[in-house]
Design a binder for these strands. Structure first.
Length: 596
RNA sequence: GCUGGCGUAGCUCAAUGGUAGAGCAGCGCAUUUGUAAUGCGCCGGUUGGGGGUUCAAUUCCCUUCGCCAGCUCCA
């Protein structure tokens, strides 16, 4: 939810950032100011402190000073200064970062405005609240302290950013904190450990997850899903090696544009071999292997391909950001006439997947080039043409999207599906690119009706993203309570007593014969303990079998998170669960974590 | 990579400049149970690694590794 700058909360948050700066200046008159805008959950302000600071003592001290300022009902007063006076004032105050901004405002011919609140004055556009009396007691709190580069550029100094939380009321602040604590409970790293989905071993390496048996079930189910969907959409599956000669990446341009993200080469017979960071060049080689006719197009090559990228250590996070990943990749080689239709079908496939999982909280980003940045292929006409095509397709489909400059791939614009994970971090779940560069680089052609050579367009698409990232979202989306078709253990059979073990084994064998993942709890635990273990394991289906059931070949069926249970003939259960799995029903059980 | 923080048993967490403790999990024995923890016992730690200060370090200092938040980058 984005606030408008005239919203009271927006202005209150912005004003609180000034109070924070004011408190900092009181404690450290030498501290220099960066910027201090409002954000989704509050505000922050960046500082350069004259000495190292410690969060555990600094934040409470600043917070209590801010509370004092709020109590004093301080007025926010705006005034403007001519450029040279503003500059002088900031220079006199020893605010080099403000001076830098001020110079730019002057160059842009903008008015230079200041806000005075009590003893503190900051160059700022506003708007602000009238007085701090408008800020309810306990509706804000300082949160964390972190580093941030000046103007977001890693070549600049690192400042100290102090984040604060701020809401309309104290109750909303408390609610936010509670929700955040609850969200941590479904963090995929925590559930991934608890549910034995993946493990990142120090000995194996950072960002290189080991998939445990339960996690591998999730991967296998996603791959099955993709194989079926891609079959229906006319894709052909291919497979390619994990390492490749440098030559291929010279052709593709990866070594030119992407080298810092690639694992360094290994030398074999005086030649450099690289771990592959992307599958596309390999698919292009497959395309090029024979002469293609327009009759072959669209040619859709699909592969769940593993790639390795050298992400900076601080960027790694659980399964969300890793160094080795397997992606739901495919490349569509199409004629100019087919681009729109094929792009549309790719979007349709996305919708099918997202509906299947019940993923609703996402938005589309049309990621375009920014020729001011040197990472992009320099060909304005092609950028404009391909961006235009994507705009048209999205418009035709009536899908809302936002256009963001500088987020494109180096070889073409992208349509990214942006989702927010459970702890509020926004990530790209899947990405689709329209590539106008590679066909030429790889000299890919097809013969048209008239026997002339033409360049195909290439659509790169990965609707299910990478297993790593997509599964991290699924874990959090479901809070670990997967629908039956995805669940690592689909059925747990709990016999009431050891005398019933044989009956339970008989049911198990029938389920196993149908490829249903089932376990019998034949441990020495008490019956109550078994019920509890089955429930806490988040198994979607629990079958309780006792004497009563055994006599009539029935089972008592409990769904995860549902208290009512039904006793039904086992044959009926079998047909129900087979449908449940075959149709991949997203009968999302009530998850206790969804309550808030 | 950068800034800040955190590393105690498989997990969750105690404790202290003077020999490290609990619950859960695991294992064993007993119990054979009809809807969310049966009882008893056992095992489990070079307090992330290395170095230093000290009579003595898990505690203080340095260093290194890992993790967390943010920045940068990104599927």
């Amino acid at each position: 939810m984005k606030l408008n700058e005239n919203d009271h909360l927006y202005r209150a948050r912005h004003s609180l950032s000034h109070l924070l700066a004011s408190a900092v200046k009181e404690l450290y008159p030498q501290a220099q100011l960066g910027i201090g805008p409002p954000v989704d959950t509050g505000f922050y302000y960046d500082f350069v402190f004259p000495e190292p600071v410690a969060a555990d003592t600094l934040l409470p001290a600043l917070e209590s000073k801010m509370k004092d300022l709020v109590k004093r009902k301080i007025k926010f007063e705006r005034f403007e200064l001519p450029g040279d006076e503003a500059l002088k004032k900031l220079q006199a105050a020893n605010e080099p970062y403000k001076v830098e901004l001020c110079r730019e405002y002057i160059a842009a011919g903008e008015a230079i405005s200041f806000y005075r609140s009590g003893d503190f004055t900051d160059m700022c556009e506003g708007p602000h609240i009238e007085t701090t009396g408008e800020i309810p007691k306990n509706s804000f709190a300082l949160d964390t302290l972190a580093g941030a580069y000046w103007r977001g550029d890693e070549k600049n100094v690192m400042m100290t950013r102090i984040y604060g939380l701020a809401f309309d009321t104290a109750e909303e602040l408390e609610l936010f904190k509670k929700r955040r604590a609850l969200a941590m409970e479904r963090d995929h790293r925590k559930l991934g450990k608890q549910m034995q989905i993946f493990h990142i071993a120090e000995e194996v390496g950072k960002g290189l997850p080991l998939w445990l048996p339960n996690g591998t079930v999730l991967r296998d189910e996603l791959e099955k899903l993709a194989q079926e969907a891609e079959f229906r959409y006319g894709y052909k599956r291919v497979a390619t090696p994990h390492i490749t000669r440098g030559l291929l990446y010279e052709i593709s341009g990866h070594l030119e544009h992407y080298k810092e993200s690639m694992y360094p080469p290994m030398m074999l017979d005086d030649e450099a071999y690289y771990m592959k960071p992307m599958n596309c060049p390999h698919h292009h080689m497959i395309y090029r292997e024979i002469v293609r006719s327009y009759r072959d197009l669209p040619l859709r090559l699909a592969e769940y391909g593993s790639v390795y990228r050298y992400e900076k250590s601080g960027e790694l996070a659980g399964l969300l950001r890793v160094r080795g990943m397997t992606m739901n990749d495919a490349h569509l080689y199409v004629t100019a006439d087919q681009v729109r239709e094929e792009t549309r079908k790719v979007m349709e496939l996305h919708k099918y997947y997202y509906d299947l999982f019940g993923l609703e909280n996402y938005w589309l980003r049309l990621s375009v080039h920014d020729l001011a940045k040197d990472k992009f292929v320099d060909n304005i006409a092609s950028w404009e043409q391909t961006v235009g095509i994507l705009r048209e397709v999205l418009k035709e489909l009536g899908i809302p999207y936002s256009e963001v400059a500088g987020e494109a791939a180096f070889y073409g614009p992208k349509v990214d599906f942006q989702v927010t994970n459970v702890v509020g971090r926004e990530e790209t779940a899947s990405t689709n690119q329209l590539d106008f560069t590679s066909a030429e680089r790889f000299d890919l052609t097809y013969i048209d009706h008239e026997g002339h050579q033409q360049r195909p367009y290439i659509i790169h698409r990965a609707p299910l993203g990478t297993h790593e990232r997509f599964i991290s979202f699924l874990i959090e989306h479901y809070g670990g309570a997967f629908p039956t078709w995805l669940a690592p253990v689909q059925v747990v059979i709990v016999p009431v007593a050891p005398a019933l073990f044989d009956f339970a084994y008989k049911l198990r064998d029938q389920l196993l014969a149908l490829m249903i993942r089932v376990e019998v709890d034949d441990s020495g635990d008490s019956f109550n303990k078994k019920i509890r273990n089955a429930a806490t394991s988040k198994a979607p289906n629990v079958l309780i079998v006792g004497q009563r059931e055994a006599q009539e070949d029935k089972v008592t069926h409990r769904r995860y998170g549902v208290t009512e249970q039904t006793t039904l003939p086992f044959a009926e259960f079998l047909s129900w669960i087979q449908d449940e799995i075959r149709l991949r029903r997203n009968s999302k059980p009530v998850n206790p974590l969804d309550k808030m």
